[in-house]
């Protein structure tokens, strides 16, 4: 019998996921949920200008595709567009859901970065600003849910929701504080594997650009020669 080929299985499942357009299903669903939540925000002083047209990308080890979040603001509304792409990020966080759980358990961001469990490529301040906004949203779930569910189920649901919100808020604060600390004390000292990867990618990008340019120059030279 053929040995179980892990790489082949991974390739097959990635292809299947892409064939079923699962990344697009996931991004469409997330986009809907996030924008519904934004529409319910009561904190009118919340400003999105720092992240306008900025893109934060999450690469989670458990997901075979990326999640990119871009904020678009107009005078009338703010929306978040969620995509699955590798081409468009201002800040990319490379981690796993289990690491995010460790963050909740108060392990520091700097530690996780040093242990190669969490990588940040690009402008880390963007991640900080996204975390800040997520924390500052004020949504009156009670009123909103009661409209649809009635008062008693809403009360029960909110008791449960409060627990989760508290834990999320704690994680958000931790991330924010850690990023601050990381920016001040650590950033210049650590070279992570994904920074190396990013460097390699940038080198490849430059090489591609040089190739495009040389193709263009060839074409121009040929055009001149033909005249």
């Amino acid at each position: 019998m053929q040995p179980f080929n892990n790489q082949a299985v991974t390739k097959f499942s990635t292809q299947l996921i892409s064939r079923l357009l699962l990344p697009q299903v996931a991004t469409a669903t997330l986009e809907l949920i996030i924008n519904k939540a934004l529409a319910l925000n009561n904190n009118k002083s919340l400003s999105f200008s720092a992240v306008a047209q900025k893109t934060l990308t999450l690469e989670l080890a458990e997901l075979p595709f990326t999640l990119c979040f871009t904020v678009n603001t107009t005078p009338n509304q703010t929306v978040v567009i969620v995509r699955s792409s590798t081409e468009c990020s201002d800040c990319t966080i490379n981690t796993s859901i289990s690491t995010l759980n460790k963050l909740k358990a108060n392990q520091s961001l700097t530690q996780l970065i040093k242990q190669d469990e969490l990588d940040v490529i690009g402008d880390i301040k963007i991640a900080q600003q996204f975390a800040n906004i997520a924390q500052s949203l004020e949504i009156d779930w009670q009123t909103e849910l009661a409209k649809h569910l009635g008062d008693v189920p809403t009360h029960k649901l909110l008791q449960f929701g409060n627990k989760i919100t508290k834990s999320l808020a704690a994680t958000g604060k931790q991330v924010e504080a850690d990023i601050g600390e990381y920016l001040v004390h650590e950033k210049r000292l650590v070279v992570t594997s994904s920074q190396l990867n990013a460097f390699n990618q940038k080198t490849k990008d430059v090489a591609n650009k040089v190739n495009s340019l040389s193709a263009r120059i060839d074409k121009l030279v040929a055009n001149i020669a033909n005249k």
Partner: peptide, 9 residues
Amino acid sequence: RLWKRFTID
């Protein structure tokens, strides 16, 4: 809608 999302991506 998904085909169009794929195009945007």
